[in-house]
Design a protein around this nucleic acid. Structure first.
Lengths: 194, 194
DNA sequence: CTGATAATAGAACGAACGTTCGTATCGTCA
DNA sequence: TGACGATACGAACGTTCGTTCTATTATCAG
């Protein structure tokens, strides 16, 4: 990896941390330059537009999510154990990996009414993740862990609701019990799926 | 109501609509002035700071939520029927009252890492609403509709997760089935509470 | 009707933003 | 090591933002 790619990685890593708290739009190029010890113009040259920078942040976030949450879960046994692994690392490692918590939840309200490449990429990321969850649940049915006839889309919706609620309660309201409540809710969902 | 209060109301009403889609920060005074047919300075004089304007938007949102969701529900019978009314109007009327959906969900990610009066007011609003839900569920226990020993805080958490998930799926992902999925999830929660 | 007061407009401000440009410095490989 | 492209910098641009100031118009009680 040449020098260019190296610093570009460092920039995007730093940008990811900032964006998780202040959002993609308020992540300013000047602030980011200060945080990385670079000049505005020197940093800007790596992206050529702020839109590109925002997109790279999401690309990096997706990759990091795969590394932290998805990849380890794929080493677990198929089915329910894999779903448990995804949920558990989502709550424990992923939500605490960045200072603002899960960046997808942090920026989704910001992007949901602003069309563009960033929004498209976020939607694609979320859809892809939803597919992964649906497939994992499907496997759990095949393995006999989940009952036949389980509504997979409803299962995925409820799983998404748990994490959305967890992010909301934990971040805005600062509920210290949010993690355990999300876990209990998840266990309830699994029990109902058997 | 004097002329001043009258136009101020009209301004905040318009601001509420814009803020539900673009957020509190990107709701710009120039844009708002254009939308209301006023000059920037003429509009600004009503608030004296943007922070005050943002706060008034949240105050108005809270009042409107009470008018649309809470007040009608209080006319329903105590207990489960009242909880049903709150949920149903939250999903049907409230989420469609503003172009960007529930403004509290729309701005919570924006405010959760930005301390200040706006954040404080939003948190207070959410806590107050959570108390209302908790009290309604408590009544349902007293009436014998919900089982004794039901974890009220967990109930409120799960209810919040349902609406958070609904907003997320409906807004960002544009899932047309989100409303029905949220309803099904709610019915499941009620059934488990009996 | 009239005068005090409130409400609005217009112009301008300083600051912050994304972006451009010319120049200097650094990394890399012949 | 020398040279050339890649990388970074400083200064400046045009815009947009919230905010202020001053002048003008509308409102409403006496």
């Amino acid at each position: 990896m040449g020098k260019g790619e190296e610093t570009k990685q460092a920039i995007v890593d730093q940008a990811l941390e900032l964006a998780s708290t202040v959002g993609l739009e308020k992540l300013t190029i000047g602030t980011l330059a200060g945080a990385t010890g670079m000049s505005k113009s020197g940093l800007f040259a790596h992206f050529r537009s702020k839109e590109q920078l925002q997109l790279q942040v999401l690309v990096q976030a997706r990759q990091r999510f795969i590394d932290i949450v998805i990849a380890p879960a794929l080493k677990k046994p198929r089915g329910e154990a894999r779903l448990r692994a995804i949920f558990e690392t989502s709550v424990k490692q992923w939500e605490e990996d960045l200072p603002g918590g899960c960046i997808f939840h942090a920026v989704s309200a910001e992007l949901d009414d602003r069309p563009g490449p960033a929004r498209d990429y976020l939607v694609d990321t979320q859809r892809d993740f939803a597919d992964t969850l649906r497939r994992a649940a499907e496997i759990a049915i095949e393995e006999g862990e989940f009952r036949k006839g389980l509504d997979l889309d409803q299962f995925v919706f409820e799983l998404g609701a748990i994490t959305a609620g967890y992010h909301h309660s934990g971040r805005l309201l600062g509920d210290p019990d949010a993690e355990q409540r999300a876990r209990d809710m998840f266990e309830g969902l699994l029990a109902r799926s058997h």
